[in-house]
Simulated assay, not measured.
Amino acid sequence: MTPRVVVTAAAAGLLGELRDKHGPLMFHQSGGCCDGSSPMCYPDGDFIVGDHDVLLGVLDTEEDGVPVWISGPQFQAWKHTQLVIDVVPGRGGGFSLEAPEGKRFLSRGRAFSADENAELNASPVITGADYERGERPPDRAPVVSAAADACPVPAGRAEAVKR
């Protein structure tokens, strides 16, 4: 199945460092306000997941994985887009664990193809209430080498970017 979320190798590396300091982790894709629309990283369980929040996937970065959540209404706006969690230099969101590290997590996106959308629409999502009852995704979300591996520049645009 096409994953709704992937993580870059650089972001996975930072998650490993943060896990060593803070224990198991989780993400919640922020919907705006103070920290924009950043993926916010917390110690697992420190952010209360709502019954209608949607699990985008569990990142394959540690033994238990890192769950990635998004609010139900925000999922409706983003459901056609694969979330790519990357890391860049800079100051992270004030509440996110990477803030003191001189790096920040960044959400990138790739629109799903029509076939991918059809595949994903045929599968139910896991909500916070489902997760509380023990439902888990069948597969882990993969680590990609770099954001460009998940979000390649379209062929026509690649030449324009080189100029």
Rank of each mutant, 00 (worst) to 15 (best):
118 A>H: 05
97 L>R: 10
80 H>K: 02
120 L>D: 05
117 N>S: 11
102 G>H: 15
110 R>Y: 15
112 F>W: 11
86 D>H: 07
116 E>I: 07
117 N>P: 00
133 R>M: 15
107 S>F: 11
128 G>D: 03
114 A>W: 12
79 K>F: 12
105 F>C: 06
102 G>W: 12
132 E>W: 06
128 G>I: 05
97 L>W: 10
73 P>E: 09
106 L>C: 03
78 W>E: 09
113 S>K: 00
95 F>E: 05
118 A>K: 08
76 Q>S: 13
84 V>P: 03
86 D>M: 04
130 D>M: 09
81 T>M: 06
86 D>W: 11
126 I>G: 02
99 A>C: 12
115 D>Q: 14
90 G>E: 05
112 F>Y: 12
86 D>A: 08
123 S>C: 13
91 R>A: 00
109 G>F: 11
127 T>C: 07
85 I>N: 01
86 D>L: 03
82 Q>I: 04
95 F>A: 05
100 P>H: 10
95 F>N: 06
133 R>C: 13
87 V>Y: 13
79 K>C: 06
76 Q>Y: 06
120 L>T: 13
71 S>T: 13
123 S>T: 12
76 Q>H: 02
71 S>M: 04
119 E>A: 15
75 F>V: 01
98 E>L: 12
127 T>D: 07
127 T>W: 00
122 A>Y: 15
119 E>P: 06
76 Q>P: 00
79 K>W: 15
93 G>H: 11
87 V>A: 00
79 K>G: 14
89 P>Y: 04
74 Q>P: 01
129 A>Q: 09
82 Q>M: 13
89 P>R: 08
